[in-house]
């Protein structure tokens, strides 16, 4: 009973913060709202007795991803200060489509038998999770670590490509990157793509 009440409250918070993420006029705020939404998710995980995942959610997402997002917003903004306008386009069409999608998904959930089910008495423990993760699925775990390594290298190469190219002499030295105060030019788009 307690859990049901907590679930209802958390669900309401998550939906509200999720809506703020997609509708906020300020990108920095939107990122912070996402943080709130992810925290709500962590609480929901805790309600469902997945405490390890809840802590990972807080550490990785709220601590890491959101910080990274805000860095990204700051690096690519065109204005000083925290005001980074987020523009939207054709909201009514998007609303109709997402409502349609929700109806379809809800219908699927509704039509599926056997979903009116309460929580099981014995939730899996963190020890079970650790055993499954590092014993049964250890190969997948290792592959995942390789993926993460590749991602790190790839992200660095992508983001620092020009400097890297210039350093090893692969790419000619290019003019300094445009600063945030420079308005979008009417040059041919793509003419500045790194060689």
């Amino acid at each position: 009973m307690m859990k049901s009440i907590a679930f209802g409250a958390i669900a309401a918070v998550m939906l509200a913060t999720g809506l703020m993420v997609v509708s906020s006029k300020n990108l920095v705020r939107a990122a912070l709202w996402l943080g709130a939404m992810l925290l709500g998710t962590a609480v929901l995980y805790a309600i469902m007795d997945a405490s390890f995942l809840a802590s990972v959610q807080v550490l990785l997402y709220v601590g890491g991803v959101i910080t990274l997002m805000i860095f990204g917003v700051m690096i690519t903004r065109k204005h000083e200060g925290l005001e980074v306008p987020a523009e939207t386009m054709r909201p009514s069409r998007a609303m109709a489509v997402s409502a349609l999608l929700f109806l379809a998904l809800a219908a699927a959930v509704d039509k599926t038998e056997g979903l009116e089910q309460e929580l099981l008495p014995a939730p899996p423990t963190t020890a079970d999770l650790g055993r499954a993760f590092l014993v049964e699925h250890v190969l997948a775990f290792e592959v995942l670590s390789v993926l993460l390594l590749g991602t790190i290298v790839g992200a660095i190469v992508l983001a620092r490509r020009r400097d890297l190219g210039a350093a090893v002499g692969l790419f000619p030295a290019t003019p300094p990157m445009p600063t945030g105060s420079v308005a979008p030019t009417d040059e041919e788009p793509g003419s500045k793509v790194a060689a």
Partner: peptide
């Protein structure tokens, strides 16, 4: 569907 900024 609505956002224009890549980060959004």
């Amino acid at each position: 569907l609505t956002r224009r900024q890549a980060i959004a």
